[in-house]
Design a protein around this nucleic acid. Structure first.
Lengths: 183, 183
DNA sequence: TCGTACGTACAGTTTTTACCGTACAAACTT
DNA sequence: AAGTTTGTACGGTAAAAACTGTACGTACGA
């Protein structure tokens, strides 16, 4: 019996270690999604939790302050990686991960890229129109040529961002799954 | 004549400002590609330069130390955003941007995502095999159930990363352009 | 071969970010 | 309504990153 118990705790330790290693891996690569490694570890911890977690649970699990958990949870929630869940009789806020990775990771990807692409495209369009005006009122000369050259670059930029925008749409509306089906 | 000269410098100033604004925009969003804002500004500056730039040129343009330019240029070069170019009679190293944005940005995207996806997938596969072994030698009980549950999560992870891997391939081999043509 | 110019390694400094503890506001319990 | 409990804003601190100047190795030109 004694022996079995030790096997049990040993196995539990192994399970914990394995989890920990995997969580470390995804946490280290979470910067691709705009999340810090710590928040990645937080996400991983909640992902493997068998039940929704409170801030105190997280604080204990990661041995970090509750304040940090609070801000981390906010980031993850805003990114759409986490959602708050209700349980009657429980006063504390409970959080859990969405178990559809396609949805979670696609949405965070789309949000980030959409925002930056829009900004850049707008900046390019604005710059272009400014230079087009400047081009009009500039007499022949080296300046005029420089403007011309900048306009070509900006034109390319706008086209690139338009393309990128469509790529993002493909992910947002799920069209990507027609091309590369979920596994 | 005096008047025309002032118009010329005024126009040049306007051109400079417009450039600067656009460069700021793309620099601020360069973190999506794993580059710092400063390096983004560096990229933008070289992009709009009419000729290849030396480290001293960059240092002067950004009012930053040559050392920083050196490290920045290295990052950008490694990322495939910049290439060194030769010019006879010029001792200094010359750098210029590749003018194909599709190529530049796709390659940097692919490299980053490929690396992290591989790592995560390997970590998931490793964890899975460890837990499968653990599952074998574990008698019925709560631990066994937990392992089971983790295995399901890992299974989903592996499938997700496989899918993501194919998505990355789509960008790497240019298949994406069949679906969403360049503009 | 010597001298000069270029790029970068390295160490020190500044700036930014991450994290924590305290304190307080909101919400729940009794 | 008073007393708890919970989450977060805020200010301070520790850790990390960005940036700089110096100093040195390397390569080119005389």
């Amino acid at each position: 019996m004694e022996h079995l118990e030790s096997e049990e705790t040993e196995g539990r330790q192994k399970l914990h270690d394995t989890r920990h290693n995997f969580i470390s891996s995804i946490a280290q690569n979470m910067d691709l999604y705009g999340l810090s490694e710590t928040n990645g570890r937080l996400y991983g911890t909640i992902l493997f939790s068998d039940k929704p977690m409170t801030l105190d649970d997280m604080s204990q699990a990661l041995e970090m302050s509750k304040t940090s958990m609070s801000t981390g949870v906010r980031s993850l929630t805003e990114a759409g990686m986490l959602s708050r869940v209700w349980e009657k009789g429980v006063r504390k806020d409970l959080y859990q991960t969405d178990d559809d990775w396609y949805k979670s990771f696609t949405s965070i990807f789309v949000n980030r890229w959409r925002e930056s692409t829009d900004k850049n495209k707008n900046a390019a369009v604005k710059a272009k129109s400014e230079l087009e005006f400047l081009f009009q009122i500039t007499g022949k000369g080296s300046l005029r040529e420089e403007i011309q050259k900048d306009l070509e670059i900006l034109d390319q930029a706008v086209r690139y961002y338009s393309w990128l925008n469509e790529v993002i749409n493909l992910f947002e509306n799920g069209g990507i799954f027609d091309i590369i089906p979920k596994k």
